[in-house]
Design a protein around this nucleic acid. Structure first.
Length: 301
DNA sequence: GCATGTCAAGTTGTG
DNA sequence: CACAACTTGACATGC
């Protein structure tokens, strides 16, 4: 069992900077690139420190935040590493991240945010999504990340048509994207049962989020969903990936979807304990939540 | 200095 | 019909 941290730290002094398109637009291009170069260089340094810190804490996986290089695919202020004054230095920091992660077996992943929707009926939305995925895949290749995990997107009144569009778009994606793309069950629209046929058809893995499954059940037990999702990874010879979180307001009464600061050990499926798998911990207390959970199960492993 | 509103992008469900 | 929730800040602005 390998536990993973998502994007940020609570107590460690590791921060990721950003900027807005609006702020950049008020600058001439050369000043834009200087500003972006400073931010990207700082973030690449933070990424190296993040994987080092994760390793020293005994955590085995790290999800990299999508805007590591902010606004890089923006239509007006987008850029490439080559355009930045510190481009070469940034590139060497990515190489350093990759070699550290590989040497210490830190598994890296990406989770593009809600704007990346391959099933949308709107061609502009799909085109922007493909551009963003190409960027994340390039970055994934640079740092050695094996997973770019997506939700299936909207329903638009007809799930099967939406999934059909997803499959059509998938077929034309570049290989560096396709070889990393995974689908995750969400808490509103698509369950494990909905996604399994798509994953089988496209030969891509299914990331099983047990919290989403509990918010939107589909008749499968947690054990069945774990096993069926696991098979999509095993068939590719890859380690299974799952997500775990606890409801902020508890399972009774309020909305169970918002995430709590820490994981209630009760929410950890018993059938996961002895499994060879990566479990990303989605909790607001970040590395503190991962460490507390690891402590909880350290006797059992 | 410090508080507060704003930030590229999509979709759904709620008030 | 407008707006918050998804993940969660950090930045820019204005006092």
């Amino acid at each position: 069992m390998r536990f993973g941290l998502c994007c940020l730290f609570k107590n460690e002094a590791i921060a990721f900077r950003t900027t807005t398109a609006k702020a950049l637009c008020s600058l001439p291009r050369s000043r834009q690139l200087e500003k972006l170069s400073g931010i990207c260089h700082s973030n690449a340094q933070s990424l190296v420190r993040a994987v080092q810190t994760v390793h020293s804490l005994g955590i085995g996986a790290f999800r990299i935040m999508s805007p590591l290089f902010p606004r890089i695919t923006h239509p007006d202020v987008g850029y490439g590493l080559d355009d930045l004054p510190d481009g070469e230095s940034i590139d060497s920091l990515l190489v350093a991240t990759r070699s550290f992660a590989r040497h210490h077996d830190i598994r890296l992943s990406f989770h593009p945010d809600q704007f990346v929707v391959l099933s949308s009926p709107r061609p502009d939305v799909v085109a922007n999504s493909i551009r963003e995925l190409a960027y994340q895949a390039w970055l994934a290749e640079a740092v050695g990340a094996d997973v770019i995990n997506l939700h299936a997107g909207g329903v638009y009144g007809d799930k099967l048509s939406a999934l059909q569009r997803f499959c059509q778009v998938f077929a034309d994606l570049p290989e560096i994207v396709r070889s990393r793309l995974t689908l995750e069950n969400d808490d509103v629209s698509y369950t494990v049962s909905d996604l399994l046929p798509v994953c089988e058809r496209l030969a891509i893995p299914l990331v099983y989020d047990v919290h989403h499954h509990r918010c939107k059940p589909d008749g499968l037990s947690v054990e069945e969903a774990t096993r069926l999702a696991g098979a999509t990874w095993q068939r590719l010879g890859r380690e299974q990936y799952c997500h775990l979180s606890s409801p902020k307001a508890g399972w009774e009464g309020g909305d169970p979807r918002p995430h709590a600061d820490y994981i209630d050990p009760e929410d950890m499926p018993a059938c996961w304990r002895e499994r060879a798998m990566t479990v990303d911990i989605e909790a607001k207390a970040k590395e503190l939540a991962v460490l507390r959970l690891m402590n909880c199960f350290s006797g059992g492993e």
